[in-house]
Amino acid sequence: RLHIEVEGTELMKKLVEEAKRRNLNVRAKVENGKWIIEID
Rank of each mutant, 00 (worst) to 15 (best):
E38H: 08
V6F: 07
L15S: 00
L2I: 14
R21E: 05
K13Q: 12
A19S: 02
E5T: 12
N25H: 13
H3N: 10
I37Y: 01
K29A: 06
L15R: 01
T9M: 14
L11V: 10
N25A: 11
G8K: 12
L15Y: 10
K29E: 06
I36A: 02
R1D: 08
L15F: 10
I4Y: 13
G8R: 11
E5F: 11
R1M: 14
V16R: 03
V26I: 05
N32F: 05
I39G: 01
G8Q: 11
V6W: 06
A19K: 01
L15W: 09
H3R: 15
N32K: 05
K29R: 14
E31G: 04
V6N: 03
K14I: 12
I4M: 07
R27A: 10
K20S: 06
L24F: 07
E31W: 07
V30S: 13
K29H: 15
G33L: 04
R27F: 12
G33N: 06
E17L: 10
G8T: 15
E5Q: 09
E7A: 10
E38R: 04
I37V: 07
R1C: 15
K14T: 06
K20A: 07
V30I: 14
N23T: 03
A19G: 03
A19H: 02
V26A: 03
N23V: 03
A19V: 04
E5W: 12
G8I: 09
W35Y: 05
K14A: 11
A28P: 02
V30A: 13
K20G: 04
D40N: 09
I36W: 03
N23I: 05
K20N: 05
L24I: 05
E10K: 10
I37P: 00
W35F: 05
A28D: 01
L2R: 05
E38V: 13
D40G: 13
V6G: 09
N23F: 10
E17P: 00
I39V: 06
E31M: 11
K29M: 08
I4F: 13
L24R: 04
E38Q: 09
G8M: 10
R22H: 10
K20H: 10
E38Y: 11
R22K: 12
L2T: 06
K29Q: 07
K20E: 07
I36L: 06
K13R: 13
L15G: 01
V16A: 02
A28E: 02
K14H: 07
K29F: 15
I37E: 00
W35P: 01
K34S: 05
L24E: 03
T9D: 14
I36H: 06
H3I: 15
A28F: 13
I36G: 01
L15T: 02
R1S: 13
T9I: 14
W35D: 00
E17H: 09
V30L: 15
K14S: 07
D40A: 09
R21A: 09
E18L: 11
K20P: 01
T9Q: 09
K13W: 14
M12F: 06
V30K: 15
E5S: 10
A28L: 13
T9S: 09
D40V: 11
V16W: 07
E10Y: 08
V30Q: 15
I37F: 01
I37A: 01
R27M: 10
E17K: 11
R21W: 04
A19Q: 01
V26T: 01
L15P: 00
N25M: 10
K29V: 10
I39L: 05
G8P: 04
E31P: 00
I36E: 02
L15M: 07
E17S: 10
R1L: 14
K29T: 13
E17M: 12
L15Q: 00
A19R: 00
H3K: 10
V6P: 02
V26D: 00
E18H: 09
K34R: 14
V26P: 07
L2F: 14
V30H: 15
R1Y: 14
V26G: 01
E10M: 09
G8S: 15
N23E: 06
A28H: 04
R22D: 04
E17Q: 13
K14E: 07
W35K: 00
E7P: 05
K34G: 02
I39W: 05
V6A: 04
E38D: 10
N23Q: 08
M12V: 05
N32M: 04
K29D: 04
E18W: 15
E10W: 13
V16S: 03
E5N: 05
I37W: 01
E31H: 12
V30G: 04
W35A: 00
K13E: 13
E10F: 08
H3Y: 14
N23G: 15
L24M: 08
K20Q: 08
N25Y: 11
E31K: 11
L15D: 00
E31S: 08
L11E: 14
I39S: 02
R1T: 14
E31I: 14
E38L: 10
R21D: 05
K34W: 08
I36S: 02
N32S: 06
T9C: 13
E18G: 05
D40S: 13
E31R: 09
V16C: 03
N23R: 09
N23S: 08
V30Y: 15
E10P: 04
K14P: 01
N23Y: 05
L15I: 15
I36T: 04
R22P: 01
V26W: 09
I39N: 00
G8F: 11
E10D: 11
N25V: 13
K13I: 12
K14R: 12
V16K: 04
I37T: 01
V26R: 00
R1V: 14
E17W: 11
A28R: 03
T9N: 09
E10V: 07
N25D: 07
E7D: 11
V6S: 02
L2G: 06
L15N: 00
R1F: 14
E5H: 08
N25P: 08
N25I: 12
G33F: 02
I36P: 00
R1G: 10
L24V: 06
E10G: 07
E18D: 09
K34M: 10
K29S: 11
K29N: 05
A19M: 13
A19N: 01
H3F: 14
E7N: 13
I39T: 02
V26Q: 00
D40T: 12
L11F: 10
K29L: 06
K29Y: 15
K34N: 04
K13N: 08
R27V: 14
N32I: 03
M12Q: 02
K14N: 05
W35G: 00
A28N: 02
R22V: 07
K13Y: 11
L2M: 07
D40Y: 15
E18P: 00
E7V: 13
I39F: 07
R1I: 14
E7F: 14
R27L: 11
L2N: 04
V26F: 07
W35L: 06
E5A: 08
H3G: 04
G33D: 04
H3S: 12
G33M: 03
K13H: 09
N32P: 01
L24N: 03
V6D: 02
G8H: 12
M12E: 01
R27I: 14
R22Y: 11
V6I: 09
K20Y: 05
K14W: 14
I37R: 00
E10S: 06
G33A: 02
A28G: 03
V30C: 15
R21F: 06
I39H: 01
N32A: 07
M12T: 02
N23P: 02
A19F: 14
R1P: 13
L24T: 01
I4K: 03
R27S: 14
E18Q: 09
V30P: 08
N32Q: 07
R22I: 07
L11R: 09
K34V: 12
A28W: 10
E7T: 13
R27N: 10
E38A: 04
G8N: 15
E18M: 12
V26M: 02
K34Q: 05
R22Q: 12
V6Y: 04
E31C: 11
I4G: 04
L24Y: 07
R21K: 11
E31A: 10
A28V: 15
R1Q: 12
K20I: 13
G33E: 03
R22L: 14
N23A: 06
H3A: 06
K20L: 14
L11I: 11
E10T: 06
E18R: 06
V26Y: 07
I36Y: 06
D40E: 12
E7Y: 15
E5R: 08
K34A: 04
